[in-house]
Design a protein around this nucleic acid. Structure first.
Lengths: 221, 221
DNA sequence: GTAGACGTTTAGAATTTTCTGAACGATGTG
DNA sequence: CACATCGTTCAGAAAATTCTAAACGTCTAC
């Protein structure tokens, strides 16, 4: 089994020295760690979460809080909070060792599992929430449109038409996410085509178009 | 054609008054606007961008900067900057009117087009950039691993194995994005399965598994 | 009991992001 | 020319996020 020592650069103090293998390895690890930091940022987590995940991902065995504090030169409090967030998202898990009060952490390396969790818990939830709100608004708009007359009825109908475009998109998004989680298949050609049709519904007569998702059964493996 | 007047709530000052139709319409519009603000936030833009898009999306005809400033109760400078960002992402376009110095803006209502642009320009670029960096790191790791011996070679190989998992995922992500833009189809069952295989490569002997994307031709309509 | 190791919490510091308001340049009008 | 309108820019204000350092609680060992 590999040594659990963290491959940190041995402070490149001496100038002009050709880089040792250990230093090279550490440089590569650092680059990786920073990249995941950026990814995390990009996806609305924060830099440190990404970096922590990366450190664990590159470690052959579980690490303690202090290991990570040392490696990332952050504060204990900060690491504590962020590692707990990672746990919450199923990206990291805790390991208990016998007769050792320290907590050890390791990365979930089945990345698809990790991502599915996030898709399901975060993206999908967000999507559905807005979808619900939108559908509800549309229902009210229908009522208002029916009750009102003249200009206000026109406005209600216009709002309705526009919102319908978005509703269908969100619905498609929801199905897409479900397929990703469930392992289904999706054909984007349809979505594309339908989206276009819907978008131009203003101009041409109303079309009953919906985004569609290929059902699991119908799919070429 | 609909009146271009903005349906703002007429300050609900009088108490106990049953809500006018105009007020109801405005409430619904506001809710919609705020929802898109949240969506924008969620996707790493900012609240105002989403709100501006929403305002234009619900307007039957193009609006000026000042219209939007009024509607969103923001500052001119802020709206100016954010509307330009929206333009940059192809979510909004400018309309010129004859003998009118004002700039008018309208939303791109072909949402799929808009999203494709974002996927292509932002998500995909980000993904590819990291993919490149990762591949490069892995190449170096191979060299280092070959040159080094003993423990350090082991570390290099371990890093390599772990990074490979991520590389394949990113590659799959890139293909997924391409399919979304091009209108292809994707089967997530494979991705799922392969991801799992790759993730467990640590334990079982190395498997040459890759994420795969269904080719356009092979797809059910 | 005391002392030390460990993780969590939190007030407020530091940093980053977003926003405002005023100044400015450009354009048009009389 | 003076004056008004319109959009942009930018210095600094405001707000939100992230981070640190210290205090604290719990557990273990002696």
């Amino acid at each position: 089994m590999l040594d659990s020592r963290l491959y940190q650069s041995k402070s490149q103090s001496e100038v002009g020295e050709s880089p040792s293998t250990a230093n090279q390895l550490d440089e590569l690890a650092k680059e990786f760690i920073n990249n995941l930091g950026r990814v995390a940022d990009f996806f609305g987590f924060n830099r440190l979460m990404g970096q922590l995940y990366a450190v664990l991902f590159l470690s052959p065995d579980p690490l303690t809080l202090d290991d990570m504090v040392k490696r990332l030169d952050s504060s204990k409090g900060n690491v504590s909070i962020n590692i707990r967030n990672l746990e919450r998202w199923g990206l990291v898990r805790q390991i208990y060792k016998w007769a050792d009060r320290k907590n050890y952490y390791e990365a979930e390396t089945d990345i698809w599992k990790a991502i599915s969790g996030i898709l399901q818990e975060r993206e999908r939830k967000e999507n559905q929430q807005i979808l619900r709100s939108l559908s509800q608004s549309m229902k009210k708009l229908e009522e208002v449109g029916a009750a009102a007359s003249g200009e206000e009825a026109d406005v209600a109908n216009f709002y309705l038409k526009r919102m319908e475009v978005l509703r269908q998109l969100l619905q498609f998004g929801d199905q897409l996410l479900e397929m990703m989680v469930r392992g289904g298949a999706v054909d984007f050609a349809r979505a594309q085509q339908m989206a276009h049709t819907v978008a131009n519904a203003d101009k041409s007569p109303q079309v009953e178009a919906t985004f569609e998702v290929i059902d699991e059964e119908d799919t070429l493996n």
